[in-house]
C-alpha cells in the first residue's frame, strides 16, 4: 500500500453537503476509523464522527465505505486498492446530523413496540432450560445494534417504510423472544401488522453486512415468516386449531 491515501469524506448535514478530500499517511494495520482520527488530528478537528470501543463491539462507528455499509473500526485500509481515493459517507437510511454522524432514534421507537419476555406462571421462572435451547436464542443476543442491517435493508433505505416496517434488527430481537423457551407472549400479530414482516422479501442484504455474522434471514426472519404463515395464512393449521383447540 502506498504511503498516503486520499479520503473523500462527506461533510454536511441532512439537507446539503459535499465530498471533501483529505490526504492521510497510511500505517500497517490501519483501519478506516484510524484514518478518520488522523483527519481530525491533522486537517479537520470539526469533522464529526461517532465511535466508542474501536473493537467492533459497541456498534457506534457504522458508515458507508466505498458504498458498502461497514463498521469503520473493523475495516482495514490495506484491502482497498492503492492510489484510489476511499469514499466515506454516513449511513444513507438515517437523518444526517453532521458529517458522518446520523440519528438512529427511529430504531429505539421501533424497539418500544416490542413486548418484553413474559413468563406465564411463577413456577416457570424456576424452570431451567437446556443448553440446546439456550444456544438457539444465543445467536440473536450477539447483536450489537450497529444498525448496519437497518441501513442496508432497502425497505427502509429505498422505500422509507419507517412507519410500517420494523427492520431486520428488530426481527432478530423478536426472534430471540419468540423462540425463548420460557416466553409465553405472542408477537405474531405485531410482526404481521405493526412491524410489517411481509415487506421483507428476504434478499439477505442484512445478513451480508452483519458484523456479528448473525444469520439474520435464515435463522430469524424466515422462521418468523413461517410462524406468521402458521398463524394467519395456513388453512390446514387454522382448521386444526378450530377442531382441536378448546
Amino acid at each position: 500500500m502506498s504511503d498516503e491515501v486520499i479520503l473523500k469524506i462527506y461533510r454536511g448535514d441532512d439537507t446539503s453537503g459535499e465530498m471533501v478530500d483529505y490526504s492521510v499517511p497510511v500505517a500497517p494495520g490501519m483501519v478506516v476509523l484510524d484514518a478518520i482520527h488522523t483527519v481530525q488530528a491533522t486537517h479537520a478537528p470539526d469533522l464529526a464522527a461517532r465511535w466508542n470501543c474501536k473493537a467492533g463491539k459497541c456498534g457506534s462507528c457504522g458508515g458507508e465505505v466505498n458504498g458498502k455499509p461497514r463498521l469503520m473500526c473493523m475495516d482495514r485500509m490495506d484491502k482497498y486498492p492503492d492510489n484510489e481515493p476511499i469514499e466515506i459517507r454516513p449511513m444513507k437510511s438515517f437523518p444526517i446530523m453532521k458529517d458522518l454522524v446520523y440519528d438512529v432514534a427511529w430504531n429505539y421507537r421501533v424497539n418500544e413496540k416490542i413486548p418484553p419476555i413474559e413468563m406465564a406462571a411463577e413456577s416457570d421462572e424456576e424452570r431451567l432450560f437446556s443448553q440446546e435451547e439456550a444456544d438457539r436464542v444465543q445467536e440473536f443476543r450477539k447483536c450489537i445494534e450497529c444498525f448496519l442491517c437497518q441501513n442496508v435493508c432497502y425497505v427502509i433505505r429505498e422505500h422509507d417504510k419507517k412507519q410500517e416496517f420494523g427492520g431486520p434488527r428488530f426481527f432478530v430481537r423478536v426472534a430471540g423472544l419468540e423462540m425463548h423457551p420460557l416466553d409465553k407472549a405472542n408477537r405474531l400479530g405485531l410482526l404481521k401488522n405493526d412491524l410489517g414482516l411481509g415487506y421483507c422479501n428476504i434478499t439477505k442484504c442484512c445478513t451480508e453486512v452483519c458484523p456479528e455474522s448473525i444469520a439474520i434471514t435464515d435463522n430469524a426472519i424466515i422462521p418468523l415468516k413461517e410462524r406468521v404463515v402458521d398463524e394467519f395464512y395456513d388453512p390446514v393449521k387454522k382448521l386444526f386449531r378450530v377442531l382441536f383447540t378448546k
Partner: peptide, 9 residues
C-alpha cells in the same frame, strides 16, 4: 479541498 458538491442521498 472540496472535490464535488453532493446531495446527501
Amino acid at each position: 479541498m472540496a472535490s464535488e458538491v453532493s446531495a446527501p442521498r
